[in-house]
Amino acid sequence: MSLLEKELEKKVEQDYILEAKNIKKYFPIKGGVFKREVGQVKAVDDVSLSILRGETLGVVGESGSGKSTLGRVILRLLDPTEGQIFFENEEISKMSNRQLRPYRRDMQIVFQDPFASLNPKMNVQELIEEPLLVQTDMSKSARKEKAISLLEKVGLRPDSRLKYPHEFSGGQRQRISIARALALNPKFVICDEPVSALDVSIQAQVLNLMADLQDEFNLTYLFIAHDLSVVKHISDRVAVMYLGRIAEIAPKKNIYETPLHPYTEALLSAVPSTDITAKREKIILKGDLPSPSNPPSGCAFRTRCPKAHERCSLERPELINVSEGHFVACHLYDN
């Protein structure tokens, strides 16, 4: 109990830049002649999380676990079915698009696919200037100067600013995306698998760039990825998602050294190791991710869990606090 109290106390003094409470995003499945709603895809199903100013929260999960949807809901690019989102203690979950506009300066997103996230008909300068054009009243020459300085920041040559996205490589395009996201000096950036479409050698460069920029601009990241190795590099805390729910959320050290949830264990065992002498048991999960339109009863992971028992199919596990900052949603740990 004292732990929980401590946690609560901490919460009061801690400076959360973003808090999401009980976020649900259900997509309707329409069918039949009259497009009636015949079901729902529960992409995000009751997720709560909060992000401290200046930290990086990694979100990990396989494809279809709802991590990208969560990111888009937090930015209000998708409207949540239920739940509240607070950005710097202002509730943004119910605002109209017009009301949201000033908040868009402070929150940005970098997308996964560098070939789809830049308008192919705009040149680099136009792309980077666009946020300045719509959100500020900077003069044309000031915008141009800013664009040039941003290009330098992300390690691109300013004299290629009149080129078009198709003339750049994937890594360079991702740098353009980052420059565009940073143009308005945001406080919070969602990185939606920014490196998973890139070559491994380029991944490290872009990750290092993002880490440097975080220090320089005092950014807060929500870093979405589908494998733990990328997140390990950049995160302070890590949340593991499974089928629209958070399975485990903990400081990075706990996740990598003392994972509690069987799913986290399985994910960790899949990370390739450079240490060939290390003895590791590979946990291979049976089957596929169940359909989010028809999730298993109780714990969503029980169909693939090696440690599942009877209770798992009956009750949905809640996130419980097992040690400082370490929460896990598994019946193995609540007694």
Partner: peptide, 21 residues
Amino acid sequence: ELNPQTNTGPGIDIKNAEKGM
């Protein structure tokens, strides 16, 4: 934080840029 003056050194050619297609 991003001050154009400090970041745009004299070596950078602002006027000339390669035109893209």
